[in-house]
Simulated assay, not measured.
Amino acid sequence: MRISTPTPDGMAVQRVAEAAPADAAEAVAPAAPAPSPLQSAVLQPALQAMRDMPEIDQEKVDLLRNALAKGELPFDPGKLAGLIQRFHGSEQ
């Protein structure tokens, strides 16, 4: 199960859980209202394009990894540590 969590700086972090929560099987979601025909026709191509995209853009990952290795992309480990602490709620 994928869970997206927004962070204060606007980035979304995805977490992957091995299984759904125990009570999820018992919970029944109310039926969503049917989308209007116009909304459906407008959004369907975008939704399909998103479904067709790979989960990870490996080309972009490789470009960023190479730029970091060459020193072309600035990296501030202190800033990263601060963002991790803020995300996990352990600001001190």
Rank of each mutant, 00 (worst) to 15 (best):
Q85T: 13
M53N: 02
S40L: 09
P45K: 13
P74V: 02
A22M: 03
E59G: 10
E72V: 03
D57H: 06
D52Q: 13
M50I: 13
P77H: 08
P21Q: 03
A12F: 13
A49W: 03
P45H: 14
Q48V: 14
I84P: 00
S36R: 11
A32T: 05
F87E: 01
S4G: 15
P74T: 11
A25P: 00
R51L: 07
A17F: 12
T7S: 06
V42L: 13
I3A: 06
H88S: 11
Q85N: 10
S4I: 01
I3R: 06
G89F: 11
L43R: 12
M1T: 11
Q39E: 09
F75P: 00
T5H: 07
Q85C: 15
F87I: 00
V42P: 01
T5S: 10
A20T: 03
A24E: 05
L47M: 12
S40H: 14
P35E: 02
H88E: 15
Q58M: 06
V13F: 10
M50D: 09
F87C: 00
A25K: 07
K60I: 04
S40K: 15
L73H: 08
T7H: 04
P37R: 12
G78V: 01
R65L: 12
A22S: 15
E59S: 14
A67C: 07
A19K: 08
E55V: 03
L83C: 01
R15L: 12
R86Y: 12
L47C: 06
P77W: 06
P6H: 07
V13M: 10
E26A: 07
S90K: 08
A25C: 02
P35V: 05
P6S: 06
L80D: 15
E59M: 10
